[in-house]
Design a binder for these strands. Structure first.
Lengths: 293, 293
DNA sequence: TTAATAGTGTCTTTAAGACATTATTAA
DNA sequence: TTAATAATGTCTTAAAGACACTATTAA
């Protein structure tokens, strides 16, 4: 029993616990570049959105040159797992990512503990655990990184969800394509678990908000969900109508109005102005496979 | 970064990781005892079902006499977290609880990792982590324990879900009532998280199967769900009809037939025989707050 | 006009829920 | 008969989904 073991001092006090983070973002790529001499109507077509994951290439053995999740240690005496994850997140992304909270780091970052991995064969140097986190980070916070590969060889990889075996390939130049065999440790397994976790959260909670601007059109929300969950393919017109009109989703979204009290609209993706919405954070999603509740 | 820290041997190889388990069961209590001289019709009325949690009273400081989750260590070199959890589970419950699997320990036990807890103030002896698991155990496997308190002072506590602050009280004699202040470490917090986790799983997956006999009536399923989730209160007749007839739940349950090809029925809770069903494990529940998928 | 998305209208089917009614069995 | 649960039937409303159609804007 636990009490006996700890009381007998069998267990050494830890210096820290390893933390690895699956940092996801949703990349938005206009189908046609702005500087080209094209019809502005075509320019406004829906962008290509792809789920991307931040990986770092290992400099040393074991797994030298393999790709791994960014991670670190809870190395301060008073630091929690979440605080360590946020610290690492900041190192890899935006230095001003925000303060600490329970899955509510900032309105542009979602952070949640995924699971702890501790299979004896996961690290050739011995039995070392890893507490894995997932983070959804708004694209703009990773813009610095995307400008080019840095010293640590951190790169964003597009997640290819059609094939479940060969999962990832490089986004920027498309040259580096990697699959499960190119991952260090058990990070391939962690990443598979993380993608499933994020997909599930995307369909059962309102985390889509972390991948959207504060005010967005219904079609943007549609784009985000179907980029993360490829099987999500309702007709855009029914989706827009149902989202706002259906009773069980009352209070999920609210229309945005400007100072004059007129409906605030956006023409970012369309010639015809589209109504802007925002998520209301009072909304508590409820899902069940059984009737009622 | 993780690679640097581990390569520099800052992190000591662990002897083991502490594992704590929230072992839940669903106690079934006939409203009237069998030996009383009562109308057999009344005897067959629905039983009282209550979610119960296994706790052990601590013998030593810190938190002497406080109640804690049963737990232990991954103390064998090749042991995984799940294996350690199963080993502890067996110690506390049925010695023949079954083999190892991913949330599929046996058809009578559900086991899943909940989260890892590591706040610096959770243990007065220093920063010690705990990997928490939840287990749903069929009542019959805990029958030995229920016979009476043993040397380790392990007891089942009824979970009182109406009041969120004062959560638990003793089941058998009803004398020992405990609340958040009577828990060791941060186990009160772990237990609250665990209850929420189990309730969510109960509504979005088919884990109810672990708390039921292999063949059961629709009313038994109804009893199980509403015992774990008190807000679940559909009318029994609509529930029975919808469960079997609704297209989106096609393949979830199947009727049981006897050797002669007649519908197999049960009179355990009713004078009129009720159809027996079983869960089909091909069924993959799908839930979403958005239309489609 | 056309390309592209925004949004409405209509119709059908499925599901949820209220509620009444009938069925079954043993005492 | 009665107590208790099992099961069916009917009606209403809410959602989901298919699909046609109109609206808006800039080139």
């Amino acid at each position: 029993m636990m009490s006996e073991s700890i009381d007998n001092q069998k267990f050494p006090k830890l210096d820290g616990l390893p933390v690895d983070i699956c940092i996801f973002t949703l990349a938005t790529e206009r189908r046609i570049e702005l500087n080209e001499n094209v019809d502005k109507r075509t320019l406004k077509s829906y962008p290509k959105r792809s789920l991307e994951l931040l990986l770092v290439q290992r400099l040393h053995e074991p797994f030298q040159d393999k790709w791994a999740l960014p991670g670190g240690f809870t190395d301060i005496e008073t630091e929690t797992l979440e605080q360590a994850a946020i610290r690492e997140l900041k190192e890899e992304t935006y230095p001003d990512a925000g303060s600490i909270g329970d899955g509510q780091v900032s309105n542009k970052i979602y952070l949640e503990q995924l699971s702890t991995y501790y299979r004896p064969d996961r690290d050739p140097r011995g039995k070392i655990p890893s507490v894995a986190f997932i983070a959804l980070v708004n694209e703009e916070l990773l813009s610095g990184l995307r400008a080019g590969g840095d010293a640590k060889q951190a790169r964003l990889f597009q997640v290819n969800m059609e094939v479940q075996d060969k999962m990832l390939y490089k986004s920027e130049d498309g040259n580096t394509k990697i699959d499960e065999a190119d991952f260090a440790f058990d990070h391939g397994k962690i990443i598979r678990d993380a993608i499933q976790f994020v997909q599930n959260k995307m369909l059962t909670t309102t985390i889509a908000v972390k991948l959207l601007p504060r005010e967005f059109t219904i079609s943007e929300l549609h784009q985000v969900i179907s980029a993360v969950v490829p099987t999500f393919t309702p007709s855009t017109s029914n989706f827009a109508r149902d989202l706002v009109k259906t009773k069980s989703r009352d209070g999920m979204l609210e229309e945005v109005w400007d100072e004059q009290g007129n409906p605030k609209k956006s023409t970012i993706y369309s010639a015809r102005p589209a109504q802007l919405y925002r998520f209301r954070n009072e909304f508590e999603p409820q899902v069940s496979i059984y009737p009622r509740v």
